[in-house]
Amino acid sequence: MDATGEVLAFWALAALTLVAASGVIVSRNLLHAVLFLITSFLGVAGFFVLLSAPFLAMAQIIIYVGAIAVLVLFAVLLTPRAGRDNSETSMFLPATALSIALFAIIAFVVYDTEWRVVTEVPQELTVRDLGNALLTTWVLPFQAASVLLTAALIGAIMLARSPAEEEEDRER
């Protein structure tokens, strides 16, 4: 992509996403870290639009920003005495070294590999295509994902019940 708008949008989104992600690392308050996380999710949704996947961008906003981030916020609010501390353990320096080393390796691989890049812009994939693919070629993983979601839902409810509710169930 070489249109001026696309190039500008790419660099703006890259700056937004990466600055927000580093905000998660440096902010001392866990609530601020979650707000930075939401900003980073929105930046990635912008990238999805740029990569001609508008449906997935909407799904990203609804699921990550609307559901996952709110769930994380609730978990922060439900653990009040643990504090809002977002500091690092003593493993911060080794972890930094490991991350930088991993990034160096990935960057080397990215620039060293001859990617078979398409020259023309591929045709737009619609929601209809995605739905067709999900319910024909990938119908088995689709079903497995629904079973996984049900199991996770039941598991989360069972785990997070309060002792008082468990007592009530036992008496019934």
Binding site: A21, F92, I106
Partner: peptide, 18 residues
Amino acid sequence: SLLFCMGLLIALSKRNAI
């Protein structure tokens, strides 16, 4: 990959489980 490495750093070094 930059975003992934930042995520790895957060996951490895944060004190809070959340």
